[in-house]
Simulated scan of single mutants.
Amino acid sequence: MSTTAQPDSRPVRMVFTTRAGGVSSSPYDSFNLGDHVGDDPEAVAANRRRLAESIGLDPADVVWMEQLHTNTVTVVDGPSPDPVEATDALVTTTPGLALAVLTADCVPLLLADYAAGVVAAIHAGRMGARNGIARHAVEKMVELGATPSNIQAVMGAAAAGRDYEVPDEMAADVEKHLPGSRTTTTKGTSGVDVRAGLVRQLMELGVTAIESDPRSTVTDEDFFSYRRDGVTGRQASLIWLNPKVVK
């Protein structure tokens, strides 16, 4: 397992995993955190416990989603024994409650306004991003007291536009709804760069503190990739308000 976490003195913690360091067998080797992809449920549970323990959280305090490529945003204020149904973004103001997003090419987008004490975890696939999942999440954060100019956005590894080939009509449709996303692949064909479109959308919403991991899950075998492998696992991205700092 490989994670990137903020020091304990930071008001907001973020973690991004890779596929290494778990107990799952091929083709889910080895740190698969997705419980819906056909992997041994006991292996997934063990990996999730290992993740929580490594970042100093109780596994019960990690909230997962039933991700369906919607543009639905759900506010949570406490642990959930089951994945939150039919949602692709979670928002909370509760310190110590970690919001988790699973991906294997889609964009994991984490948002935080630590001054207001509001964080969000977003599953921004092509359809969700096209249909405004990021915008809706920012709007929900604002309802809870966040200010767009104070929001920090971090995007994890995802399918790069150069590797994300789609039909011309689909590229045009996504570009119409998510301007800045249309691109050309290394094959010279139409492609979609979801992260590029999200950057433009976030900036138009007033979110300008944006960081993005440039790695492509399709070509970097440190990550799970559905487009590359078909049957595969899922990495996770987590965000939470540090209860040691935010009360």
Rank of each mutant, 00 (worst) to 15 (best):
T3W: 12
T4R: 12
A5C: 13
Q6R: 14
P7L: 09
D8C: 06
P11V: 08
M14H: 06
V15Q: 06
F16G: 01
T17E: 06
T17F: 04
T18A: 10
T18N: 13
R19S: 05
A20V: 11
A20I: 10
A20S: 14
S24Q: 11
S26R: 15
D29Y: 13
G34I: 12
G34H: 08
V37T: 15
D39V: 14
D39E: 15
P41A: 01
V44D: 01
A45E: 12
R50T: 12
A52Y: 08
S54T: 09
S54M: 03
P59I: 00
M65H: 06
M65S: 00
Q67Y: 03
H69D: 09
T70A: 01
T72Q: 07
T74A: 03
V75S: 05
V76S: 03
P79R: 09
D82V: 07
A86D: 04
A86L: 05
A100R: 02
A104F: 11
D105V: 03
C106F: 05
C106I: 03
Y114F: 14
A121F: 10
A124W: 04
R126Y: 00
R126W: 00
M127L: 12
N131L: 07
I133L: 08
A137N: 06
V138F: 05
V142C: 11
L144Y: 12
L144D: 05
A146Q: 09
I151W: 07
I151M: 05
Q152Y: 10
Q152T: 14
A159N: 00
A160D: 02
D163G: 01
D168W: 01
M170W: 09
P179W: 01
R182W: 09
T183M: 13
T184R: 14
V192T: 14
R195K: 15
L198E: 12
V199T: 12
R200V: 10
M203G: 12
L205I: 05
I210C: 03
I210T: 00
S212G: 05
S212P: 02
D213Y: 01
T217W: 00
T217E: 00
V218D: 06
T219K: 15
T219H: 14
Y226Q: 14
R227C: 03
R227H: 13
R227I: 13
D229G: 08
T232F: 03
Q235G: 06
S237K: 06
S237D: 08
W240C: 08
N242E: 11
K244Q: 15
V246G: 01
K247H: 14
